[in-house]
Structures are given as C-alpha cells and as structure tokens.
Amino acid sequence: MIGFVSSLQPLGELVLVNACLAFSQYVVLRAGVFSLATAGFASLGAYGAAILAARHGVPMPLALVGAGLIGAVAGLVLSVPLSRLRGVYQAIATLAFVQIVLSLALYLEPVTGGAMGMNGLPRLIGGWELILVFGVIFYAMLALSRAGIGSTFDAIRQEETVAVSLGIRVVDYHRLAFALSGALGGLGGGLMALRNYSLVPEDFGFPLLIAVLTFVVLGGRVSPVGPVVGAAVLTLLPEIARPLADYRLLVNGVLMVLVIIYWPHGIVDTIRLHLRQRRHAVSQAAP
C-alpha cells in the first residue's frame, strides 16, 4: 500500500505543476485573449527561479515569488502591444514570443547554459510545498471567478462589443489577464525548475505550449475547476492505461479533435451547463 502511494507521489506532483501552467493558459482564454505565451512565461520563470536559488542562494519561497514576478512583468510588457491585436494575430504574436524566449535561452549561454541547460539544481520543493502553492493559486482563481472579474472576463470573451457598451474597459482587463497569465506561468516554470534537478530550453517550446492548451481545452475555459481536471486527466491517462503510453501523442490528438468538435466547452463546463439546464427544467416543472 505504502509502495503504491509513494509511486503515485511524483505523478501527483506533476499534476499539480501542470495545473499551475494550465491556470496560466486558462486566465487568458477566459478573458477572450488568444495568447499562447504560457510556455514563454514558464521559461522565464524557470530560469529566474533556478538562477536565484542555485547561483545566489535565495531561499525557495522568495525564488518562487521572483519567478512569478518575472512572469507578471513579462506579461504586462507583452500586453502593451498585444492588447491591440485580436484572434489569430494575437496567437501568432505570442507564438513568436515563445520562440524568441527559446532562442535567447539557447543563445545567452553564460546566463542560461545554452543548449546544455542548467544541471545539478537543488531540489527545493516537495509534495507539501506544492500542495500549499497549488491551494493558494486555486483559491485565488475561485475568488477571482466569484468576484466581478470572472463575469467581466466572460462578457469580453462572449461579445466584446457588448462588453464595451456596458462600460467595460476591455484593454485594461486584457492587460490584467496577460499579467495574471504571466505570473501563473512564471510560477509554474519556477515550480518545474526547483523540482526537476535540471533545465533545458527545449522544455519550454512548442510541445509544452500545445500540452498546456490541451489541458484547458479538455477541462474547460470558464470554471476554474476545468484546467485542474484537464491537467489531471491528460497527465494520469497514459499512466493508468499503460498500453496507451506509447501512443500518447495519438491519444492526445484524437482527444483534442473529439473534444473540440463534440464537447467544445470542455468536460467541466459541459457538465455544469447540463446540470444547470436540468435544474432549470426541474424548477419549471415543479409548480
């Protein structure tokens, strides 16, 4: 029993780290911003945390805060030009950001170690710290969702023109979404760096970008539970169904196509919608 639980622990930790990255993608998508910059933010946060903790001996909590701050600043800076773009153009511009960060991480060898990356990093984060960080983020997301910001984000995503007519300053909220996404992405990257012993630029390329996007598409883009469910399902699925592990890419692809065609709101939001409709139907039938 104990052996089984201890074998699950690294997997559980991976789910939590992935969920943090998924939150970074979730925040922007909920606000109707088509940003794919999470992988870039994670890269900045990871290198930031690793350099702070390993080279300058900064204590772990401060290094994490630093990673989040670096991400948030990057998000804010990026939002200044990008809140002017929409849709495909925003997506492509953030893709460019991810590629620029990746190639700079390869180029700036004295700082980042280049293609070899950074090795022999101290492992400063264990299960309990991860649960604590995740709990704080999840609570913040729930609170954000219940406060007016969540519904403002929903309004902007569903119909920007209406949102403007309601007096919502769309650009401000887009900036907020970018900054939050940057902070969460940086934090997620920091968690990766302080847990993985090593760090290479390729960890934060196109594959990570797609993985994080898949978490949110599968889980759902409105409820904060969605990204957690998406990250958990996609991280655990190849482990539970061992024969599928070799076909991970295939399963991911098939899931993505099926979900976006048949359940375009994602697992959690589709179920919530369904429950709400049923409650509505019941309350109509009762009197």
Binding site: L213, G253, V254, M256, I260
Partner: peptide
C-alpha cells in the same frame, strides 16, 4: 486551430 493541432498530432 485546436482541432488542426489535434490532427497534426495524429
């Protein structure tokens, strides 16, 4: 975009 990424992975 999502579904074409999915097909690309397949």
């Amino acid at each position: 975009i999502i579904s074409s990424i999915g097909v690309a992975q397949i």
